[in-house]
Design a protein around this nucleic acid. Sequence first.
DNA 1: GTTGACATATTACAGCTGACCGGTAAAAGC
DNA 2: GCTTTTACCGGTCAGCTGTAATATGTCAAC
Lengths: 200, 200
Amino acid sequence: MPKQVDHRERRETIARALWRVVEERGIAQASVREVAQEAGLSHGAVQHYFATREEMVVFAMDFASAQTSLRVAEGVSGLGDPPHPRDLLRVMLVEMLPLRPDARTTSRMSAAYVLEALHDANIRTRARDGLAHGRDLVERIVRQAVTDGHLSPDHDPATETNLLLALTGLTPLVELGVIEPQEALTAVDQHLNRLFGKGT
Amino acid sequence: MPKQVDHRERRETIARALWRVVEERGIAQASVREVAQEAGLSHGAVQHYFATREEMVVFAMDFASAQTSLRVAEGVSGLGDPPHPRDLLRVMLVEMLPLRPDARTTSRMSAAYVLEALHDANIRTRARDGLAHGRDLVERIVRQAVTDGHLSPDHDPATETNLLLALTGLTPLVELGVIEPQEALTAVDQHLNRLFGKGT
DNA sequence: GTTGACATATTACAGCTGACCGGTAAAAGC
DNA sequence: GCTTTTACCGGTCAGCTGTAATATGTCAAC
């Protein structure tokens, strides 16, 4: 057996370097050489782990999605059992908004993902499936909330799901400093409280 | 006097060519040469109207914002006088979402604008000011709606404004085909109806 | 018809890009 | 010790980039 290196770990290291480049200089600057330098590797080394630049970028994007899911899972673990759907949704939304460093990093990767998906068939399929999956999760939570009586049945689950996901539209406002993170949180809570009834 | 050319019109022609490139191939492909070809010009000709690529891109983005404002103005002109704030806001939101070809084009430019703004000081200032200005307009409408009794005074105008603008977060869902344009409209109307009271 | 001002086109150049390839080092099995 | 496999390096190549310099075209005024 030859020299052994944990492939996945190396790829994740490179992916994190790519995140930093994207966050600081933009996806356009995320060339193989730039990412290699950021990761402290030669560009040949990076090519050993990713045959093409696209492969590297796609991996970094999927990895960012996975990390977001992880952060959500951590946040949910701190809730009651069973958690109130409002709290569940709040954790998901907060981790999707660029309110903390980790979330900001993955949020920017996500934005670049979507933009790239608009004119690349492969990435489009991946992004679409990922987004559709996330939307299904939310809709399931909403439907369960109706079943459990947390939500009055005159709400259309599909529409309410779309409105909840639309809250990620606060991202540009926060990123450009038009509103403060606290105001974004206030807006999220206002929406959730209005949805579930201000009292409970 | 030499041969005269309408500079502004030429620049707008080039900007529209850039829009097409961005929509079909992405902002990364919007090089001086590519845009020139799309516009049916030599890349030297484009250079005559825009000294640098950045100048061209910034102009095209500002032009896209202006066109969106124009479409909103047209839409508003078809409303009653004075228009109901709900209808006013609906027109603005509909023109910001990628629901029709024109709006989709400018929406994609807008997305690229924001992403570029995150790591370019000049563009950041421009994008931020533009967004802040748009937000001010919406907040003014919300405050006027409270004054005019269309909105109960227990609404916080700033938060409601942020929630209205957040509806642009439906964009990725529509662009990636996760939801249909009609569903986005339903969501917008649902939010507006809930805000202004379902009856009126 | 010459001049001047501007529009447009051509060409050149330096820099960066992604992809590719040959070479080397190291580690493990035989 | 030899071979095999994996890890990594550094160079090279063609292609595209933005931009500058330069040349040509075009039209109006004089």
